[in-house]
Computed example of a mutant assay.
Amino acid sequence: MNLSFNDAELEVVRLAAGREGMSPVSWAGRQVMAVAQHVLVPVSRDAGDVLRELVQARVHLRETVTALRALTADGPPVAGLAETAATVVAQALGAVARVDEGTVQVMRERRPRS
Rank of each mutant, 00 (worst) to 15 (best):
E11S: 06
V32N: 03
Q105T: 03
A90F: 07
F5H: 04
L68S: 08
A82Y: 07
V89S: 06
P112D: 06
L15A: 09
H38G: 02
H38A: 09
G94T: 15
V35S: 11
G29N: 10
L93P: 00
L54F: 13
T72P: 00
T66V: 09
N2P: 01
D74A: 04
V13L: 13
M22W: 02
A67D: 10
A90G: 03
V13P: 01
T84A: 12
G48N: 02
L68A: 05
M22H: 05
R108H: 08
D49Y: 08
M107P: 01
V13R: 05
R19K: 09
T103G: 15
P76G: 08
V13D: 01
A34G: 05
V41E: 11
V13W: 11
V99N: 02
L54D: 11
V12A: 01
S114F: 14
M1E: 12
G94K: 12
V13S: 05
G48L: 14
V13E: 00
T84C: 06
M22C: 00
A79M: 07
D7M: 01
V43Y: 11
L61M: 12
R113V: 10
L15H: 09
R19L: 00
A92D: 03
A85P: 10
H60S: 13
R14W: 02
V32M: 05
V89G: 06
A8R: 14
E11L: 15
M107T: 05
S44D: 09
L51D: 10
A67R: 15
E11F: 12
R58D: 14
A28E: 07
P76A: 11
